[in-house]
Every structure is written in C-alpha cells, then in structure tokens.
Design a protein around this nucleic acid. Structure first.
Lengths: 220, 220
DNA sequence: GGCTTTCGATACGGATCCGTTCCGTATCGA
DNA sequence: TCGATACGGAACGGATCCGTATCGAAAGCC
C-alpha cells in the first residue's frame, strides 16, 4: 500500500491467484498474498535496493509472508521479477489531437508527473542497470511500460510530419529522442524528485523552435 | 589491461601504492596489484555485474590477487568503489572555439565515442542505479567524470548566449539537457553499443534549428 | 464432517560471502 | 645477513541466502 496512490505508474499490481481452475479443491490461494509480494518488491526497489541485494527471504519478510508462499507462486527471483514488470500500469494520457504541439506537451507532462516520479524512476534505474545480465527483464519492462508511450509519441510525430508541422528529413526515432532525452537526463542524472513544473512544455517548445534566437523564439 | 586501450574513459587506473613513506621498511606494496584490483572491478561492471553482486572474494579472484591484498588497501567494498570512481579518466575534447555549433558537435561527438561507449555506459548505468543507497558513490563519479564535461558544455552555451548565437531567455542548465539528453536516451534505453556516426552532429543541428520545417532547416 | 490445499513460521543442508588470521615465500631497507 | 612488510593462498567463525521440508492452523470444496 503506502505510496502507491501517489504514483499511479505502479497502481495495479494485478491479481494472479495462481491457476484458479474451477474444479480446484482445498484452500484457494490468497490474492492478497500475491499483491503483497509484488508490492513489497516495488517498495524495496523504490528504496533503492538493487536486484542483486534483493533476496527472496527479504522479499517475503517485507511482504509479511512465508517464504514458501513465494516459492509456491514463482520458481525463483527472475520469474518473480518478470511478473513484477508485468504488473506495472503504463496507461498513457488522452490526446485530443488538436495540436501536435499540445499533444507533445501532454505526453511529456505525463512522463514528468508519472513516468519519472519517485518510484518509477527508481524502477527504471534498477532495470536499466541489469540490461546486460538479465535482458529478459528489460524486455518485459520495455514491452509493458516503454513501448506504448514510445508508439504514441511516434504517432504524434508522424502526424506532424504529414501536417507539415514537423520536418520530414529526419528519422522519427531520432526526433523522439530529442523530446524524451532531456527529461530523462534530468530525472536520471540530476533530480531525484519530481521535475519542475513547466519543464515539459519548455522542452517541447525549444525543440520545436530551436535554441537559436530570432522571430521563431516565440512559441507558436 | 585487456580492453582499456579501446575505451580511454577508463584508461589511467592511477597508482596508489599505499603510504609510500620514504622511511618505509619491508617489501613495498605492489602498484600492479592496485591497478589489477581496480581494473578487475571495472571489468566486472563492464560485464553487467551490479554492485550488489560484486563480492570482495569475486573481485580478488578476478584480479588474481589474495583477498588480504585487497583488505590491506581498502577497509571495505564502499571505499574500494570510491577509489574506482576516482581512477576514471574524464579528459574532455579540445575545443577550437571558432564556432559554437562546432564546439557543441565536438563535445557531443566525444560523448558518443567515449563517454557512452561500452564500458563507460555500463559504469554509468551501474552507478546511477545506486544513487539512493550510496549517494557518495554517485557524488564521486559526478565529480570525476560528469562535472568537467558539464562545465565545458555550459561554457560553450554561455559563449553562444553572449555571441547572440543562442537564445538567452532560458536557463543554460536546461539548454544543456537538450543537447545531452538525446544521446543519453539512446545509450541507456535503446543502444548497448556505440551510437551511430553523425548522431552527435544531427542532434546539435536539430536542437539549434528546431524540428519545425522552414528556411532554418538548413543548418547554419 | 472429511479431504485437500494454502497459510505463516521454523528449520534444514549446502552455498557464498565477510573480515580476519595464518602460512610459506618474496622483496625491500638497514 | 636480518628484520620488516607484502605477496598469493588457504582456512576460520559468523552471517546470509537458496530452495525444500515440515509443522499446526485456516479455509475452501464435497
């Protein structure tokens, strides 16, 4: 529980009460235990504990659960971590589609408020650190969290290129990095808390208009 | 040894043969052991081993050194890691200062080729992941590697603002993130090898001119 | 009420690590 | 040559972890 409400990136831990077969006999698995375990992992990661320092014993302790209850659901830490990634909520913002510029601001503002908030940024740092040793973990995180937002951003950019609002002589992927990169740099390298308000709109306007002075400096 | 020559970010491990007092008696400490240990840590991190999975035993094994030899120099893993950070070489590129645009390209090109190469990016990912639990580690890395480059970038930007080549209505720190962020996003989120050639110049020109189409799209 | 499965808790053998200590050898200053 | 210190290697007691097993209690089906 605790801070989950403040950081909706990781809201829905999802119930996975094991193979809830209809003809199942005996005491059913506790859905509360499932979410308690996943929530415990997220809480530990949020506190900066790296995956290497995450032991199954510690997870069970933090979740207030017996170790056997964890092993009854997952064969090991890797499998558990994969399900933790799958539990993340990566819903994006609604775009009204009126202005390309406004949609870009909405996307980046959403990223600023949720995607790079305390827990989410800790998660990102932790997962990224294990890219080489556990590529499946990054793959799962990417599929669950990154992919959707990236596609949404590319859609807006392509719309702008069709509109004539965005130059068409560059790769959309590169353009996407121009918008996302600055937020990422701030969140990972400088700030550990929420990025300043207005930062998203600032970045969008500067990337659109360029940092050279001139008539264009007034954002359209 | 090994790949150090390919990635000059981590060239000079520096000799720290303990308190090499002049009146020191007995067999002197081996400078080779010093660099073997530090080099072993860097090699392990390069292979994706996170700090949590780095044990003193494993480090000594990898370095081909007795465990006591490690503990004779450092009281524990934290102190060793700090010296590993201090051993990094963060020399920047020479800037001819003719054009702000060219200096920016030089800085980002240097970052692409060295600062975000294989070993350096693995190091960055690992250190960033432990920001919360070991802030001193990040502080040391920042002082040794990041600060100098950041200052150099700010200098160029301020020169451009005085020149009239860069708009003056924004914080130089924010401007810096616009240039560095896209490379960072690529290196940390997408590519695990070297970034494509020409990427640095592309980013500089697009940030300078903006991504809107028009007469300015031709880089000056 | 029986049967089955899960629950938290505890304990297990085996493994790894920590930080220290000791070994026999190597390498320095005096 | 002698005393001092460092070397790689091995072992130590204590701690933590892994994955499994077992316990009595709880919670479902039939």
């Amino acid at each position: 529980m605790s801070r989950a409400a403040e950081d909706p990136e990781v809201a829905a831990a999802g119930t996975r009460p094991g193979p809830a077969a209809p003809g199942r006999r005996g005491r059913p698995r506790s859905a509360a235990a499932d979410s308690a375990i996943i929530e415990a992992v997220l809480r530990l990661i949020e506190d900066g504990v790296s995956i290497g320092d995450l032991s199954m014993e510690r997870i069970a302790r933090e979740a207030g659960v017996g170790k056997a209850t964890v092993y009854r659901r997952w064969p090991g830490k890797s499998a558990l971590m994969l399900d933790v990634m799958r539990s993340l909520d990566a819903q994006g913002p609604r775009l009204d589609g009126a202005s390309v510029r406004d949609d870009l601001v909405s996307l980046l503002e959403f990223l600023r408020r949720r995607g790079l908030a305390r827990r989410s940024s800790a998660l990102l740092r932790t997962v990224v650190a294990h890219v080489q040793t556990q590529p499946e973990l990054w793959a799962e995180y990417h599929d669950t969290v990154v992919r959707g937002r990236h596609e949404a951003l590319l859609d807006v950019l392509r719309r702008g290129m069709a509109n004539g609002e965005i130059r068409t002589d560059r790769d959309p992927e590169t353009l996407a990095d121009l918008f996302v990169g600055p937020l990422l740099a701030r969140a990972l390298l400088h700030e550990w808390k929420e990025l300043p308000e207005g930062f998203a709109a600032d970045v969008v306007d500067m990337v659109l208009e360029g940092v050279r002075p001139g008539p264009r400096a007034a954002a359209g």
